[in-house]
């Protein structure tokens, strides 16, 4: 984004990126929502108990490991997605980035969210919405950069990226646990 000049052009590209990320996230949410149906015969309390074991486990894993080692794709999204122009490229990049499985996932936060959708067996519509919101949330930092960023933004952020990833995991885990308690109560 930094190589694109002009705020209006950047906002246009961000809009395409937002649309793509939302679609990509919604697709992942839909897949998780459908797969969660397999767990629907399991009683609510058992599934809540499973979450109460796995979510803290993921948090501890993220806090303990210098670099998160969980199953993920280790390749970056290729620059060739922009071959057909910025808008199309921004959308396509967004779809791959927003789905959360097509590139690096350096924080356990997304695993915690995915686990919640999968194990809590939320209604399919909510699974899709949660996925879409996840995808859209991945674009917020880019919007922050466009509206408030200054030269050196990426360098400053890279100084505490791991803290952001770990904090995000802790906050996500707390919120998912709260949602689980409300679901079973």
């Amino acid at each position: 984004m930094a190589s694109v000049r002009g705020r209006s052009t950047q906002l246009g590209l961000w809009s395409a990126f937002l649309a793509g990320c939302t679609v990509g996230g919604a697709a992942t949410g839909a897949v998780l929502g459908v797969l969660s149906g397999l767990l629907s015969p399991v009683p609510d309390l058992w599934r809540a108990g499973l979450l109460c074991v796995l979510v803290p486990g993921l948090v501890l894993l993220d806090l303990a490991q210098p670099v998160l080692r969980l199953p993920q794709r280790t390749e970056l999204i290729p620059r060739s997605v922009f071959a057909r122009g910025l808008a199309r490229g921004g959308f396509r990049f967004g779809v791959e980035y927003g789905c959360g499985v097509r590139t690096l996932v350096p924080s356990a936060a997304s695993y915690v969210s995915a686990l919640f959708v999968l194990v809590a067996v939320v209604p399919l519509g909510w699974a899709v919405l949660l996925g879409a919101v996840f995808g859209a949330a991945r674009t917020l930092a880019v919007l922050q950069y466009i509206l408030l960023g200054r030269p050196g933004w990426q360098h400053f952020l890279s100084g505490h990226t791991r803290a952001l990833e770990r904090s995000g995991t802790v906050v996500t885990a707390a919120l998912v646990t709260w949602a689980t308690v409300l679901l079973v109560s």
Binding site: V133, L164, E165, T169, V176, A179, L182
Partner: peptide, 23 residues
């Protein structure tokens, strides 16, 4: 505050933000 959807939605926003360093 009494519905599961609120913390769930906030949770997925937090997980999206957590990955911002790789943008």
């Amino acid at each position: 505050a009494a519905t599961w959807q609120v913390p769930a939605l906030l949770g997925v926003v937090a997980s999206g933000l957590a990955l911002s360093g790789s943008t």
